[in-house]
Design a protein around this nucleic acid. Structure first.
Length: 650
RNA sequence: GCCGGCGUGGCGCAGUCCGGUAGCGCAACCGACUUGUAAUCGGUAGGUCGUCGGUUCGAAUCCGACCGCCGGCUCCA
């Protein structure tokens, strides 16, 4: 009977034929053996280097979630005889399992499946691994066509799952209580180690992610190391729901999507329009200071333009269908601004002295997004890009990219986002124009610029646009979600397609390089993200309303109006709530409207000219003069502060 | 586009399974109260039940198509 020595000095005896995991110290699941995540029933020998995996670690959670997925499949097979199971991996925050079922599963059925899963958990069923020849596996899973398809694919050149555990000669099966699944493992030792899980929803998903394949039923769940972790996660979900820009947008009267206009086409109401204008105005100001020139271009164009650019051959499906004139000429709504900006460049011959040329436009474009993907303001069919195209010489690209990145991060911070990472997306195989050398060069230029920033960089292989690689800036919001914000792309292709040129100092003609960049991406989407980031409580400089007056009685309205006029003279957005409601009700209305500051004005204030400031948190500060309030708010507004002013307690 | 769910006054919902011509709360409007930091009281008005078609003596309710929304999948220049 060999003995295994774990790093923390724990000795484990290996009973013949028993999984080691069961004998591991409490809180330890599976292990890392010689650098590989392993099922301890297959530890190669007692001289192996074994590190226990903590349940809270990424690997620990992965094991937990994948094992819970097995239990889910087991429960579904019990409850739906004839069910065929496909794949069930761990994913971020949880797991899913895909099934082909004899009858549809509805959200209401999840409770039933959950109960069955908990029975299985209670029985402490061992996860037992067997490595069997392929023929035997095919026989044992003969009524599971998806598993057969996977087994037949194992070991082939296209198979990426192959490693030294799944050799191709044999395949590994994991069984508990007679239910068997094809699986690389590893798993937790037994089902009793699971429990902090919850089935969350049921949805359709294509087999192997291909829309040409049949659609399966996917059951999603979340699983955590402890009940507290699970509760914390569910709480985060609730918090995200509370911040949902679609709800907040309706509650605060910011925007709507009238059905009569069409799917994915937003209208901004006065308050939302004001916030949007404040966002745009600041962006314009900064772009002007950074040397951008503002241009305007039409919304429709003849098909020629997008034939030259290549958009029509790659993205015709994503464009609204053309309008055809009598002569047969086709006009399209523009899905991109770049070709229009290129034509501005091409309107006359250009000199190297004019470069870099930076053309900026809040350009409204239309994209025919599939009906199922339209989502609030974050995925729409009509959107306004804060789009700029920078034309540079080849020599200038590196430096320009560096300053663009600095500019972008700086500006995003002003809007209140400061936790970033960058993603470098490379050539999409089979969906790209230009030579591999050009792509390598453009990618390398981007990488070098990105590496000068003090922000982490991750790779996104194959994620680039058809004309060039891109850097995406991703930002984490107030509750830790990441959003793709700005994109910066280097493009050698469109300058070629449009035969762009400039005269160099050598009196020869040269081809400029083009940088595409959008900071908000889409103004609508950025608006939605900020709404969720702030949960509707925008910082003062972006708030549609800054100071609200609540008169105690009708006789105080006049004084409030006078104060509001003073505030407006100082450049503040002030509002008097003269509705005939109780003070309590008006305070409540101000709070629900996320008014940054509220002043209740009654007889006391008329006499003393000292006010009690109520902020969004409901904190009251008394005895503040109106002059001081105005000065403080003007300062908070102009500094674009993210925190509210502290007036101190009275 | 695909799978599943859903669509009832401005908003949130009940009624739909078991057809018999709509109800609640908030908001709006009117009146009383003139109010001190998160909801004063009373009253009034407002809906061809997403749209079109079908079944039926009769449809919010059953069937079909379309439009739109929600959760995923696929997609995202």
């Amino acid at each position: 009977m060999p003995t295994l020595t774990l790093p923390e000095g724990v000795h484990v005896e290996l009973p013949e034929g028993e999984p080691v995991g069961a004998a591991l110290p409490k809180g330890t699941i599976a292990a890392r053996v010689d650098g590989h995540l392993r099922d301890l029933s297959f530890v190669p020998g007692d001289d192996a280097q074994v590190e226990p995996i903590a349940p809270h670690s990424d690997e620990g959670l992965h094991l937990l979630r994948h094992s819970t997925a097995h239990v889910l499949a087991q429960a579904v097979c019990d409850l739906y005889p004839g069910a065929r199971y496909a794949i069930g991996p761990a994913v971020a925050d949880g797991f899913y399992y895909d099934f082909d079922l004899p009858e549809p599963v509805h959200a209401a059925d999840l409770a039933k499946i959950d109960r069955r899963m908990r029975q299985i958990v209670k029985r402490n069923q061992r996860f037992v691994r067997e490595d069997v020849p392929r023929d035997e596996a095919l026989e044992r899973l003969h009524d599971q066509p998806f598993k057969i398809e996977i087994i037949e694919g194992i070991g082939s050149d296209a198979d990426e799952t192959r490693d030294e555990v799944t050799s191709g000669e044999t395949v590994s099966l994991y069984s508990n209580d007679g239910w068997t699944d094809l699986c690389m493992g590893p798993h937790v030792p037994h089902t009793g180690m699971l429990g902090a899980f919850k089935l969350t929803n049921v949805a359709g998903a294509y087999w192997r992610g291909d829309e040409k394949n049949p659609q399966l039923t996917r059951v999603y769940g979340t699983a955590w190391a402890t009940k507290d972790d699970l509760d914390a996660y569910l709480h985060r979900l609730e918090e995200a729901e509370r911040r949902d820009h679609r709800t907040v947008g309706a509650d605060l009267d910011l925007f709507s999507f009238p059905e009569e206009i069409g799917s994915g086409l937003a209208v901004f109401h006065p308050k939302g329009g004001l916030v949007r204008r404040l966002m745009e105005d600041y962006s314009r100001r900064r772009h002007e200071e950074a040397g951008y020139d503002f241009v305007y271009t039409p919304h429709i164009t003849k098909s020629d333009l997008f034939e030259i650019s290549g958009h029509l051959s790659w993205f015709a499906d994503g464009m609204f269908p053309p309008m055809e004139l009598d002569g047969g000429t086709q006009y399209y709504l523009k899905p991109m601004n770049c070709p229009m900006h290129i034509l501005i460049y091409k309107s006359r011959t250009r000199s190297y002295r004019e470069l870099p040329m930076r053309l900026f436009e809040f350009g409204t474009v239309y994209r025919y997004e599939l009906s199922g993907v339209v989502h609030g303001l974050t995925r729409v069919r009509g959107l306004t890009m804060d789009d700029a195209h920078i034309f540079t010489t080849k020599e200038q690209v590196g430096e320009e990219l560096g300053s663009v990145l600095t500019f972008v991060l700086d500006l995003l911070r002003d809007y209140g986002l400061d936790d970033f990472y960058m993603e470098l997306s490379t050539r999409p195989e089979g969906k790209a124009v230009g030579t591999e050398e050009e792509w390598d060069e453009a990618t390398e230029t981007l990488r070098q610029a990105a590496e000068t920033m003090d922000v982490p960089l991750v790779m996104d292989p194959g994620g680039g646009a058809f004309y060039g690689p891109k850097i995406s800036v991703r930002a984490r919001d107030a509750i830790g979600r990441t959003w793709q914000m700005s994109t910066i792309q280097v493009d050698f292709q469109l300058p070629q397609r449009f035969e762009m040129e400039y005269s160099g100092d050598d009196n020869a003609r040269h081809r400029p390089v083009m940088i595409h960049r959008a900071l908000f991406g889409s103004v609508e989407r950025f608006f939605g993200v900020l709404t969720e980031h702030y949960a509707g409580a925008f910082p003062l400089w972006l708030s549609p309303e800054q100071l609200r007056f609540v008169p105690v009685a009708d006789r105080h309205v006049e004084h409030c109006e006078a104060l509001a006029a003073r505030a407006k003279d100082a450049g503040l957005r002030a509002f008097v709530d003269d509705s005939k409601e109780s003070v309590g009700k008006k305070i409540r209305a101000a709070q629900l409207a996320k008014a940054p500051y509220t002043l209740v004005v009654g007889d006391q204030e008329l006499e003393s000219d000292a006010y009690t400031v109520r902020d969004r948190a409901g904190t009251e500060s008394g005895g503040v003069s109106f002059g001081r309030i105005v000065d403080a708010l003007v300062a908070e507004d102009s500094s674009r502060a993210l925190e509210q002013t502290d007036f101190g307690s009275a």
